[in-house]
C-alpha cells in the first residue's frame, strides 16, 4: 500500500510540473514563433525563453527521484 502511494506521489511530483512546463512552453513557443517571423536574429533568446520553464519539471523530477530512491 505504502509502496503504491509513494509511486503515485512520485508520478504526481513529476506529472503536475510537467503539465505546468508544457503549458508555459506552449505559450512561450507560440509567442517565440511570432517573434522569429519578424526578427529571426532573436533565435538564441527565443530558445532560452522556451527552455526556462523546464526548471519546474526538473524540480519535480528531483522530488520524484528522492521519493523513489530514499
Amino acid at each position: 500500500m505504502e509502496k503504491g502511494l509513494v509511486a503515485l506521489a512520485a508520478a504526481l511530483a513529476i506529472g503536475i510540473p510537467a503539465l505546468a512546463t508544457a503549458w508555459a512552453q506552449g505559450k512561450i513557443g507560440s509567442s517565440g514563433a511570432g517573434t522569429l517571423a519578424e526578427k529571426p536574429e532573436l533565435s538564441g533568446i527565443v530558445i532560452i525563453m522556451i527552455a526556462i520553464p523546464e526548471t519546474m519539471v526538473l524540480f519535480g523530477f528531483v522530488v520524484a527521484i528522492l521519493l523513489l530512491y530514499t
Binding site: 538564441g44 530558445i47 532560452i48 527552455a51 526556462i52
Partner: peptide, 10 residues
Amino acid sequence: SIQSMRLHYV
C-alpha cells in the same frame, strides 16, 4: 544541444 546551450546561456 538545446539543454547544453541553455546551461551556457542561462
